[in-house]
Simulated scan of single mutants.
Amino acid sequence: MSQPDTFAAQVATLSAQLLKFDGGDRAALRRMEPDTPAPPAYWRLVTVAGFIHWSEEKQAVLRRVVRQMALLVPAGETDKVTLHKTDRPLGAVLCDGGDGEWASRGGPPQPVISEDRLARFLAMPARGRGDALDRMLRGIARRRSPALGIDCGELLMLALRPDDTARLNDIARDYYRRLDQATRSAQQKATA
């Protein structure tokens, strides 16, 4: 088996392989806990993606991110599902819920994850942020458009460096950028 040799390629491979798994393997990954033994599907996935040589500490982090990614994959056929998309930052997805039609539903756009909830997420201690992100992604998974992805590399980097202030600021910036774009678009439609 050939393994990807850059982080970006590894994340892309991880995402692509996850979409190839059957429903049973994806369900096992959704149930996986970072601090318990991983199911065989996890080990197949990280081997192909080139993460097999990571330390146990990093594997625990990766297990959480793989679970988050699996949560975002809808049940059933995955032929038309996009999971990883580098131009869909986490902050934007927290704002629009991964729904391409979100801003055109009428009225001023309301973020899927409220500003208050985002602020609490960004301010919380790093050790609690993973569980909070899990809960937010579960909610997003229910409404996410399968054709729109999320930058899974950003999920992984946030988990690996939870105290990185610049990364947290990027999430907020991307959230507000997405909200501002939708608000301006709604205002232009209202005045046209």
Rank of each mutant, 00 (worst) to 15 (best):
F7G: 10
A8D: 07
Q10C: 11
Q10P: 02
Q10W: 04
V11H: 01
A12T: 05
A12M: 04
T13F: 06
L14C: 06
L14F: 04
A16V: 05
A16D: 11
A16I: 07
A16H: 09
Q17V: 02
L18F: 03
L18E: 03
L19Y: 01
L19G: 00
K20N: 14
K20A: 14
F21H: 10
F21S: 10
D22R: 10
D22A: 12
G23K: 06
G23N: 09
G24I: 14
G24Y: 13
D25S: 13
D25M: 11
A28S: 10
A28Q: 09
L29R: 14
L29N: 13
R30S: 11
R30V: 08
R31N: 14
M32L: 07
E33H: 11
E33P: 09
P34S: 09
P34D: 05
D35Q: 03
D35F: 02
T36R: 10
P37S: 00
P37N: 04
P40C: 01
A41P: 01
A41C: 03
W43L: 11
W43D: 13
L45G: 00
V46P: 07
V46N: 06
T47L: 15
T47F: 14
T47G: 15
T47C: 15
V48Q: 12
A49P: 09
A49Q: 07
A49M: 12
A49Y: 07
G50F: 09
F51Y: 15
I52M: 15
H53M: 15
W54C: 14
W54V: 13
S55K: 14
E56Y: 15
E56P: 13
K58R: 15
A60Y: 13
A60N: 14
A60T: 14
A60K: 15
L62I: 09
L62G: 02
R63E: 07
R63G: 05
R63H: 05
R64C: 10
R64P: 08
R64V: 11
V66C: 07
V66R: 04
Q68N: 11
L71T: 05
L71N: 06
L72F: 07
L72S: 09
V73G: 05
V73S: 07
P74T: 08
A75K: 05
G76C: 10
E77L: 10
E77Y: 08
T78A: 00
K80P: 08
T82Q: 14
H84W: 05
H84V: 01
T86D: 13
T86H: 13
D87P: 01
D87A: 06
P89M: 06
P89I: 06
L90R: 03
L90F: 02
V93F: 06
L94D: 02
L94W: 04
G97S: 04
G98P: 01
G98C: 03
D99L: 04
D99Q: 08
G100L: 01
E101A: 09
E101N: 10
W102R: 01
W102I: 03
A103D: 06
S104H: 08
R105P: 02
G107P: 00
G107H: 00
P108A: 12
P108S: 11
P108W: 14
P108D: 15
P108H: 12
Q110K: 14
Q110S: 13
P111G: 12
V112C: 12
